Amino acid sequence: MQRVNMIMAESPGLITICLLGYLLSAECTVFLDHENANKILNRPKRYNSGKLEEFVQGNLERECMEEKCSFEEAREVFENTERTTEFWKQYVDGDQCESNPCLNGGSCKDDINSYECWCPFGFEGKNCELDVTCNIKNGRCEQFCKNSADNKVVCSCTEGYRLAENQKSCEPAVPFPCGRVSVSQTSKLTRAETVFPDVDYVNSTEAETILDNITQSTQSFNDFTRVVGGEDAKPGQFPWQVVLNGKVDAFCGGSIVNEKWIVTAAHCVETGVKITVVAGEHNIEETEHTEQKRNVIRIIPHHNYNAAINKYNHDIALLELDEPLVLNSYVTPICIADKEYTNIFLKFGSGYVSGWGRVFHKGRSALVLQYLRVPLVDRATCLRSTKFTIYNNMFCAGFHEGGRDSCQGDSGGPHVTEVEGTSFLTGIISWGEECAMKGKYGIYTKVSRYVNWIKEKTKLT
């Protein structure tokens, strides 16, 4: 034993070699072989497995989906700052455009905790909710729209109204504003409101030439003092309507412009014939205590009207009353817009006519005020429907199939267009061939041609 100890002390290297040989010859039971080890760690190889990531292109799944990435790591994937920024906006807080917040056709661009709407022409605001041009839906104005110097929408209202708090709607500024039905039992019968379409306001006024200088022999019209197929109006439903009495009662109609003036057809009036105007009328054979009678003290036909040349060209006249009318729910003026808007309103496509005229061709006159909704007829169809001249200051309205029309005794009465609950004068009943005849239409004086003249002559002093 002493000898062994001496050998170990003198030859430590020998001992180490012996131990190493023993270990190498022993069977290893701690580690699995290569094949079995792979069965336990069965993990798919990654895209760049075996390579240094710093030297390969980034992978979106590896960089940002398996674990949260930084902007720089995302930049490695896209290799483009702009594309990385677009991805980053949604990656950080989701897609803010998912709810489609942009209105009126706006395009949404996502941002971090926010979004941006790219608005089409005519709109602005956070969600493109603000109209900035009158060309689109009248700028959301209830009545009139004008573009300011910086191309912003400025709404306005006709006389007797003021802008509401929203700067879009119009509200009454006087007790009985024009064009409004205020009798409670008839307010439910107000005709369907007309909503502004998209309009090209630059070209809204037709490029028409008034044929002022045409000389033409007097034409022989049949029954051209021209509501057939209409309905009984309720008291106060058309408070701007008046009836004219002269040699015979209810020979023509008219509309209240203001307390002192009536507008009617020029062919209705004769110099030297006494005319009485009755406002607030409903049943011409009954006294309903809503009527107001006034005498006409002055007749002003349009300066281009000449019955000797043509009885229905420039067929418009103004009547001055001896005493002002007292405005109330049964006696209310009709609204008159400017030339541009009167023309736009007419193009809405349908209007209402009213009167006490004959209820059928050569038949009896109506006792109760009649009204009828009539569609506008395109000019080409209008011209083809008659052998008589249709001037540019006239328009056609009615039904091709016949059966409904204005008729004798309705002449001078109103053709009105309702705009968001307020009625505007767009025409004056003038003439036609018979009444409600198939293929024939009622012919009306186009008020847009005469609004400046009306307003100039009827100013209240």
Rank of each mutant, 00 (worst) to 15 (best):
V4K: 14
M6F: 12
A9K: 08
E10G: 13
S11I: 14
S11Q: 08
G13K: 13
G13A: 10
L14G: 05
I15D: 02
T16K: 10
T16S: 07
I17C: 08
C18I: 13
L19K: 02
L20R: 02
L20Y: 07
L20C: 10
Y22D: 02
L23A: 08
A26T: 14
A26Y: 07
E27L: 03
C28W: 01
T29K: 12
F31V: 13
L32V: 14
L32T: 10
H34I: 14
H34M: 13
A37F: 02
I40F: 08
P44F: 07
Y47G: 13
N48P: 03
G50V: 04
K51D: 07
E53W: 00
E54W: 00
F55Q: 15
Q57T: 01
E73L: 00
E73V: 00
R75F: 09
R75W: 04
R75K: 15
R75D: 15
E79H: 08
E79I: 06
T81W: 08
R83Q: 13
F87H: 03
F87N: 03
W88K: 03
K89N: 14
Y91H: 08
Y91L: 05
V92A: 14
D95H: 14
D95T: 12
D95W: 08
Q96L: 14
S99D: 10
S99C: 12
N100E: 12
G105P: 03
S107G: 08
S107F: 06
N113V: 09
N113L: 09
S114V: 08
E116I: 06
E116P: 03
C119K: 03
C119D: 02
P120A: 13
P120S: 12
G122N: 12
F123T: 10
F123V: 07
E124G: 11
N127V: 08
C128G: 03
L130S: 12
L130W: 08
K137A: 08
N138I: 05
C141I: 00
V153C: 04
V153W: 06
V153T: 14
V154E: 08
C155K: 01
S156F: 12
C157R: 00
T158E: 06
E159Q: 08
G160H: 05
G160F: 02
R162I: 11
L163I: 10
L163C: 02
L163G: 02
A164F: 04
Q167V: 05
S169V: 06
S169L: 06
E171R: 07
P177K: 01
P177Q: 01
C178E: 01
C178G: 01
G179C: 02
G179R: 00
G179K: 00
R180K: 13
R180V: 05
R180H: 09
V181M: 12
V181C: 06
T186V: 14
T186P: 13
K188C: 06
T190E: 09
A192C: 05
A192Q: 09
E193L: 11
T194I: 13
V195N: 13
F196W: 14
V199G: 11
D200C: 05
V202A: 14
N203G: 09
A207D: 09
E208G: 06
N213Y: 08
I214M: 08
T215L: 07
S217P: 14
Q219E: 08
S220L: 13
D223T: 13
F224H: 10
T225C: 05
R226E: 15
G229T: 05
G229Y: 15
G230P: 11
E231M: 09
A233I: 08
A233R: 05
Q237T: 08
W240M: 01
V242L: 02
V243T: 10
N245W: 08
N245E: 07
K247A: 15
V248C: 05
D249H: 10
A250C: 07
F251S: 09
C252F: 01
S255I: 08
I256K: 00
I256P: 01
V257R: 00
K260Q: 06
K260R: 12
W261T: 01
W261F: 08
T264P: 00
A266L: 02
H267I: 02
E270G: 10
T271L: 14
G272S: 10
V273T: 13
V273M: 15
V273I: 09
K274W: 04
K274G: 14
K274T: 10
I275S: 03
T276F: 05
V278T: 13
V278Q: 05
A279W: 00
E281I: 15
H282K: 07
H282M: 09
H282Q: 09
N283P: 05
E286V: 08
E286A: 09
H289G: 11
H289S: 14
T290D: 05
T290I: 07
K293I: 07
R294W: 00
R294I: 02
I299N: 05
I299W: 07
I299G: 05
I299R: 06
P301K: 14
H303Y: 12
Y305E: 00
I309G: 08
N310A: 10
N310K: 05
K311C: 04
N313F: 07
N313T: 09
H314M: 02
H314L: 01
I316A: 02
L319F: 04
E320R: 02
D322S: 07
L325H: 01
L327K: 04
L327G: 02
L327Y: 07
P333L: 00
C335F: 00
C335L: 00
C335K: 00
E340A: 11
F345R: 01
L346W: 08
F348M: 15
V353Y: 04
G357D: 11
R358W: 06
K362A: 14
R364H: 10
S365G: 07
L367I: 12
V368L: 09
L369W: 08
Q370A: 04
Q370E: 05
V374S: 04
V374G: 02
V374R: 04
V374C: 03
P375F: 11
L376G: 03
V377H: 03
V377K: 05
R379D: 12
C382I: 03
R384E: 11
T386M: 13
K387P: 09
K387L: 06
F388A: 06
T389K: 08
T389M: 08
T389V: 10
T389I: 12
I390T: 09
Y391M: 15
N393L: 02
M394I: 08
C396K: 02
C396T: 01
C396W: 02
F399C: 06
R404A: 10
D405P: 13
D405Q: 15
Q408R: 09
G409E: 06
H415C: 02
V416Y: 11
E418R: 08
V419F: 13
V419A: 05
T422W: 02
L425F: 03
L425G: 00
T426Y: 00
T426A: 00
I428L: 10
I428E: 00
S430L: 14
W431H: 11
E434D: 15
C435E: 04
C435V: 03
A436L: 09
G439L: 04
G439S: 12
G439E: 07
Y441F: 09
I443C: 04
Y444E: 00
V447N: 00
S448I: 02
V451M: 03
V451F: 04
V451N: 03
I454H: 01
I454T: 01
K455G: 04
K455E: 05
K457M: 15
T458E: 01
T458P: 01
K459H: 10
L460G: 06
T461I: 09
